[in-house]
Design a protein around this nucleic acid. Structure first.
Lengths: 239, 239
DNA sequence: GTGAGCTACGAACACTGTTCTACACCCGAA
DNA sequence: TTCGGGTGTAGAACAGTGTTCGTAGCTCAC
């Protein structure tokens, strides 16, 4: 009678399916489900386990710790990102660079708070290496000076990550209040600028409308990327 | 000695000084002490309270919550940052811009993990407004198109924050191991690149030495800022 | 068929941020 | 000088976190 189990109709709790085995991909998927539904602050090992209907400690058989899990999440988000083919044509190159920047941002925005997960992750891992290689190949084809080939991608990535990070923190703040309060928040910012003493703060008060327009993040982003591109081209022409 | 206290030799535990009253600045100072000594991960309300020899709950009479405390830390770090005077001279302006960027980075690096504290903080608060005003005044004097005056400072700030954030995450990782292991980590990176199959990863393996050189963050930073400046100048000349 | 090695589990530990209630103190009014 | 009253402090408690442990059961190779 070593393993005699209790008769099924006496089974406590919900009748469980044959218990599918866990795996890293399933766990990562569940983690994304939690992230998208509840946000970064609620992303806990217990929540991920609950998502799978599994005990917390079971996760640790597949993933060393929470940081490792987040690294896996980052890797996965990285895997299907767009990387342009190299081209010698300068004009085409800048156009593809623009595209790359936009889609990198889009990738980070494909999951709620993803930037907070990916921020500060080590870029060199076996999974990401092929992608880095292709990225470098593209950047090299633009005819930049050697030190800038890696630098350019690096800088732009840092900027994009930082940009989306702040963007998403801001969106979380908006999401945490009701839609009616949301409009109130926007109005508050506007009034804040309108109430500024133009004597004391000539520049800030003059810039009020610009700030409001700048809250459209797409334009802000594009403008920043344009500055980057101009700067890169200036260096390329010189070298 | 207006008021009678228990005779000192009967005092329980460590003889405490007359119990000085708490205040926001003292708390912030203690928080910085914890941050510098133990790093961001160990920065807890309890640690701050312990630093002051005070109960945790006492902090909440002066500070709404941990986020509010971190906001105060950020404000304080922001207060004594360098902001250049406006100038119409284009060459002088770019030189001061360089200086501003470097000292902004230096400010963020003035405390361990400070970038992680400041990341995602709302930039508009009564304490920071005068500084923003002066910053805008400087950026405006460079003769940039109107939409870029605020954008330029904004973009560069996000970049610098992101840069220092990653930089400090890296440094924390280095600090968490012994000095002997530290060299091992550097060697590991070098070997990682040396072992790369040049057939499979021509760009990455060729860039190995560049990566190593790039680990000197000061140069990396300066190069990035130079790109920014070139880009801004290009836009300024055009507008 | 049987044993060995996975792997899931529940409980526990040492933390975290935050709140509550009660107590001690200081200050100003009487 | 006496007496409250309000403020700031303290301790305990709550709900939550990441992580580890020993145990029990399952699966697979032999």
């Amino acid at each position: 009678m070593s393993k005699q189990r209790p008769m099924s109709w006496l089974s406590t709790g919900a009748d469980k399916p044959p218990r599918e085995r866990l795996s890293v991909p399933t766990i990562v998927e569940a983690a994304y489900a939690v992230l998208d539904r509840d946000g970064f602050d609620k992303l806990s090992m217990r929540a991920v386990a609950a998502e799978l209907g599994v005990a917390v400690s079971s996760l640790y058989a597949h993933v060393a710790n929470k940081d490792a899990l987040m690294h896996q999440m980052w890797v996965r988000s990285f895997l299907d990102s767009y990387i342009p083919e190299p081209t010698e044509d300068r004009e085409e190159w800048t156009e593809r660079l623009r595209l790359w920047a936009r889609s990198t941002r889009a990738g980070l925005r494909s999951h709620r708070d993803l930037a907070r997960v990916s921020m500060g992750q080590t870029p060199f891992s076996d999974e990401s290496l092929p992608l880095l290689e292709r990225t470098m190949a593209f950047f090299r084809s633009g005819g930049l000076p050697e030190e800038l080939v890696m630098g350019a991608g690096d800088f732009m990535s840092t900027f994009i990550e930082g940009f989306v990070y702040e963007e998403q923190v801001w969106e979380e703040r908006m999401n945490s209040v009701s839609p009616s309060e949301r409009q109130a928040m926007v109005d508050e910012v506007r009034e804040y600028f309108e109430r500024l003493d133009p004597e004391l703060y000539p520049n800030m008060s003059r810039l009020g409308p610009v700030v409001m327009r700048n809250m459209l993040n797409d334009d802000r982003f594009d403008r920043a990327i344009e500055i980057f591109i101009q700067g890169l081209l200036a260096q390329a022409n010189r070298g």
